[in-house]
Design a binder for these strands. Structure first.
Lengths: 234, 234, 234, 234
DNA sequence: TATGAATGAGTGTTCATTCAT
DNA sequence: GATGAATGAACACTCATTCAT
C-alpha cells in the first residue's frame, strides 16, 4: 500500500548497465538490441534513452565499468610487486584470468571497442591506455633498473605482449580449450623475457674478459709455441 | 531499362570483385551493403547475385583473392631464404608491406577472423592457415636446425608474432603514421629472436673454445707470471 | 515524420487485423504483401511487426478470428437442434451463409489448408477440426440413434460433405451466381441423407404398424369386400 | 565428328515440358523457378521463352498434357461400361489411381489450376470440364435409364463426388496413408449411390398402397369400430 | 521520469522476363 | 534458334530513435 521507496536514479542506471553488459557480452554490437536490453533491465526502451544518449554511449559505459573494475583490482596488487618478471607474470596472468571469468570480454574489447573509427583519442582508448599503463610502467622501470635492455622499444614490446595475448586467446580459449592463467603466464613471460632482458653481467662475464686475457697470454708466448697452439685449436 | 552492352563474364566478375573489395575495406562486413557494391560496380544488385551466391561468398571471394596473391608473391621468395632470422625478417617485412599497399587489409582480416563463430574450419581460416604456414615452417625448421630453442612452443610464438604485428599496426599505421617495413621488421625480429634463440649451450660454442685455449696457455706460464695476470684481470 | 496520434493498442491491432483480412481475402497468401496491409491499415510496415511476429502469424490471427466468430455463432444454435437431418441442414446452410457474407472466405480457408505441409497438427488445422466437429458429432449421434447407417464411415462422410460444399461453392458462387443457403442446404442434405440414412428395417417402422392395422381391419371385413379391395389395389 | 541429327523443335519442347512437370509437381507454382526448369531441361532460361510465352503458359501446357493423357486413358475403357454404378466405380477408382501414380498431381490441380482468377472459361477449365464430362454423362445416362432419381441435380452430384474425393485424398493420402483405389471406390460409390439412386419400385411399394387401402377400409367401418381403432394405434 | 507505439530507412535476397549477341 | 547476362521491382523483416502522453 505504501509506495516502495523510490528508486534512485543510480539504481535504475545500474540495472540498465547490468542488462546491457549481459547483452553486449552475448552478441556482437550490431546484433545486440536495445529492446532486449530493456527487457532484461525490466524497463522499456524509452527509459534507457533517459539515461544514455544512444546505443554507442551505453556500450561505452559498459566497457568503462569493466575497465574501471579491472584497473581497481590490479592497482593495489601491482603496486607491491617490484621485479620486472614478476610484474609481467602477474599482469599476463590477470589478463588471462579475464577469459576464465567470462571468455566473451576480450572478444568484445578487441572486436567492438576498437572497431569505431573514432577510437583513438576517445573514451575507450583512454581506458585502454590506463590499463596498458601497467605494462608500460613495468617496461620503463625494467629498463631504468637495467632489468631490460636499454634499447627495448616499450611501445613495440607492449604491442607484442597484448597482441600475442589476443591471438593466443583467440586460438586457444576461442576454440573452447581451457587454460591455467598462472602456468601460461609463466611460459609466455619466459619466452618473451629471455629476448627482452638486458644481458646480465654474469652472463657476459665468462667470455668478455677472455679475449683480452688470451691476447695478453698469447702475446707473451714464443712464436713456436704460438704456432703449436694454433694447430691444436683446429 | 535496357541492359548495358554485354561484357565478358570474367570482366564483370572482376568489376564486382573490385567494387566489393573497396567497400569491404571501407566498412565492417555488417555495414557493407550489397547496394553500395552494386553502385560502385556499375550494375544493379541482382546482377551481383548472378556471380556470387550471397554476400558472405562475395566477401570470401575478395579475401581469397587477396590471400592467393599474397601467398603467390611470398612463396618463391621465401623458398630461397634459409636462415631463421632472415626468413622472419622477410615475412615480417612482407606482412608490414600489406599495410603500405592498403592499410585497411589487416583490419579486415583481423576483424573477420574474430567475427563469425563459423570461422574455425571455414574457408577463411584455411587461407589464414596457409599464410601462417610460412611462419610455422620457419619456426619448426629453426628448431630442427638448432637455431631456435628446442622447447619453444611454435603456436605460441606464432600467436605473439602475428598478434604483435596486428597491435603494432593498429597503433602505428592505424594512427596514420608511416613505417618502413624493412627497418621495423629488423627491429621486431631482433627483439623476439633474442628470446627465441637457441639455448646457451649451443650458442656458447664460440667462447667455449676460449676456455680451453686459456687453460692451455696459462698452464704453460710461470707461476709468477700467472700471479701477475690474475692481478691484472680484476 | 511525426507519429500519428497515439491510439489504444487494441484499436490499432483491430485496424491491422481488418486490413490484413481484406488483403488476405483478396490475394493468395504468397501474393498478399505486408506493405499493402500496412497501407490499408494506415500505418507503416514496422508498426505491424509491433503487433504480430511475422506474416504467417498475422494470417493465422485473421483466420483464427474468423473461425472463433463462426464457432461462437454456431455453438448455441446447434446445441438445441436434435434431429440429424435438421442439424445437417442447419450446418450446411450456415456454411453456405459464409459465402453470402463474403464469398472469399471459403477460398482462403481451402487454399491454406492445402498450402503449407505444416498444416496438419498446426493452429489452422486445429481450428478447422473444431469447426468440423459439429458435423462429426452430428454424424456419430446420428449413427448412435439409428438415424444413420451403422456402417457409415463418418470421416468419409464428412469429407464428402465439406468437399462437396467446397466444389459447389467454387462452381456456383465462384462464378458470381447467387444462392439461397436454406434452400440449397435442404436439397443437399436430401441428396446425401437418402444415402446415409438408416437401413430400411428401422426406417420402415412408421408403416410397419400400418400392416398390422390393415390386417386387423381386413380381418374384420367380409371375404367379398376383401376380394374387391385386393382387386382395386392393383 | 558428324553433327548429331538436329533435334526437332518438338523434341526440345517435350524436354522442357518434362522438366517443367517435375518442377511443378515438386513445388507450388510460385516457388517453382524457370531457372530450375531450364537446368533440368538441359537448356538455359532464354530458350524456354522460345517455346512458351511465359511461366503460366508453361504451367498450363504441363496440366494440359496431363489431362490429355488422363482422358485418353479413360475414354476407351469408359466407353464399354454401361451400368451407372460400374461407371462410377471405374471413374472414382481411376481418379484415386492418380494419387497412387503421383500423389502430387491432385494437389497441383486443386491448388494451382483453380487459383487463377481467370480460371473459369480458361483453358484449364475446359480441360477439367472434359474430364468431368465422364461423370456428367454417367449421371445423365443414369437418370435417363431410371437408375438414378429423376430429380437428382447432376451438377450438384458431380461437385459432391469430386469435392469429396479431393477432401478425402487430402486427409488420407495427404497424410501419407496408403489407399487401394478399387476398394475405396467401391465404398464411396456405395455410400453415394444409395442416396442418389432412384427409389426402386419394390422399396416404395410396401406402403405406397397401404394408405389408400387403410382409408378405404376405415371408411367402411362403423364409427364405433373406428373409435376403437384410433384408441389402439396410440 | 517513464512509457511504448510509431517511425522509416535499411537489409539481403529472389526471379520472371528481356534482348544483344 | 539458342544464349545467358542484365534487369529492376518486389519481398519480409529489423531496429535505433523519437515524442505525445
Amino acid at each position: 500500500m505504501t509506495a516502495l521507496p523510490k528508486r534512485r536514479k543510480s539504481v535504475r542506471r545500474a540495472e540498465i548497465l547490468a542488462a546491457a553488459r549481459e547483452v553486449f557480452l552475448a552478441r556482437p554490437y550490431e546484433q545486440a538490441s536495445i529492446t532486449e536490453i530493456a527487457e532484461r533491465a525490466g524497463c522499456v526502451v524509452g527509459t534507457i534513452y533517459g539515461y544514455f544518449e544512444n546505443k554507442r554511449e551505453l556500450f561505452d559505459a559498459v566497457v568503462t565499468e569493466f575497465y574501471d573494475g579491472l584497473i581497481a583490482d590490479i592497482e593495489p596488487r601491482f603496486a607491491v610487486i617490484e621485479g620486472t618478471a614478476d610484474r609481467l607474470r602477474f599482469l599476463v596472468a590477470r589478463h588471462l584470468q579475464i577469459t576464465v571469468d567470462d571468455p566473451s570480454w576480450l572478444k568484445v574489447l578487441d572486436r567492438e571497442a576498437r572497431g569505431a573509427e573514432s577510437y583513438f583519442g576517445g573514451k575507450l582508448h583512454q581506458l585502454n591506455r590506463r590499463y596498458a599503463q601497467f605494462v608500460m610502467r613495468t617496461l620503463s622501470d625494467g629498463i631504468a633498473r637495467g632489468e631490460l635492455r636499454a634499447d627495448l622499444d616499450p611501445q613495440m614490446a607492449r604491442d607484442f605482449l597484448f597482441g600475442g595475448l589476443e591471438h593466443w586467446v583467440r586460438n586457444t580459449v576461442g576454440r573452447g580449450r581451457r587454460n591455467d592463467p598462472t602456468a601460461v603466464a609463466r611460459e609466455m613471460v619466459r619466452m618473451l623475457l629471455d629476448g627482452w632482458a638486458a644481458a646480465p653481467a654474469e652472463r657476459a662475464a665468462p667470455w668478455q674478459g677472455l679475449e683480452a686475457r688470451i691476447a695478453k697470454l698469447e702475446g707473451r708466448l714464443k712464436p713456436a709455441a704460438r704456432a703449436r697452439e694454433t694447430e691444436a685449436s683446429k
